[in-house]
Write a protein that binds this DNA or RNA. Structure first.
Lengths: 142, 142
DNA sequence: GTTTGCCTTGACGTCGGCGTCAAGGACTAC
DNA sequence: GTAGTCCTTGACGCCGACGTCAAGGCAAAC
């Protein structure tokens, strides 16, 4: 199988495969004509990489999984180094999710506060002085 | 106030301020000597930018807030364009958090499965055939 | 034989938000 | 005057995972 077919079967591009090879992650044998040659096992490795990439793993983080498969283990995560990556990733995800939840809460709070300030201003101007509730920005009047 | 002082008071760098200026976000007046000159209002604008950046807003997303302040409004989010950014950001955060939670669940599932497979293999080899539970990868024996 | 389609390597571009260096001007302190 | 500290513009570097060209080779179909 040549590079184009492998790329297509894995749902990626030839550029990506050459990039992986340049990183030493997915080396290829060469045919007489210099073309890269791959087999089903390479497809397996590639799919492992892609799956982890889809999960947001850095390319380097997929290396233990690939090496594990290449060492003949049944799964990419059949080796302790892969499990260590899983665990580290879980920790990173937990931290990140917590941070995002915190940011979300703060933004929601700001939005609420800003909307209330806006409404109070609107109510105020409707009653005592006289109406003057315009904002020149944003293309719309409140 | 010159650029160095402003940077220090806002906890950032002169490079950052020049960058903001190059993006048209925080233009500066110039003194006779060509030095950039800022006042307290600029510090206000800058702090608004930094706060939003810390929340993970893109630089461009801070523009409505800055323009709102510059238009004389009491807060950066006193304008509808700013509120729109808040709301869009909330949506993005929700989406992102959900994606990360999904990934987290999948990774946790994979880890669990891999650990079980490992333990079953270990138990298997302790009973019938003979012990052969070594993995050459990862530098440790299970 | 020539067109078509795949392949090769090499190298520059992308995106955001700056960091970092270089060469030189402005101003203050001594 | 000169040392030191600030300022100026310009320009390249960085990071990751490729995208996108360019120039050319190999092979099969017409």
């Amino acid at each position: 199988m040549r590079i184009g077919e492998l790329a297509e079967r894995a749902g990626t591009t030839t550029r990506t495969l050459r990039y992986y090879e340049s990183r030493g992650l997915l080396p290829a044998r060469r045919g007489e004509n210099g073309y890269r040659t791959y087999d089903e096992h390479d497809l397996r490795l590639l799919r492992q990489i892609r799956t982890l990439q889809d999960f947001g793993f850095d390319l380097e983080e997929t290396r233990p999984f690939v090496e594990c498969l290449r060492a003949g283990h049944p799964e990419g995560d059949s080796c302790p180094a892969s499990l260590a990556v899983y665990r580290r990733k879980l920790g990173e995800l937990d931290t990140l999710i917590e941070e995002l939840r915190s940011v979300r809460a703060q933004v929601a709070g700001q939005l609420l506060r800003a909307e209330q300030a806006r409404d109070e201003l609107a109510a105020e101007s409707r009653v005592p002085g006289g109406p003057e509730p315009e904002c020149e920005l944003g293309g719309q009047t409140w």
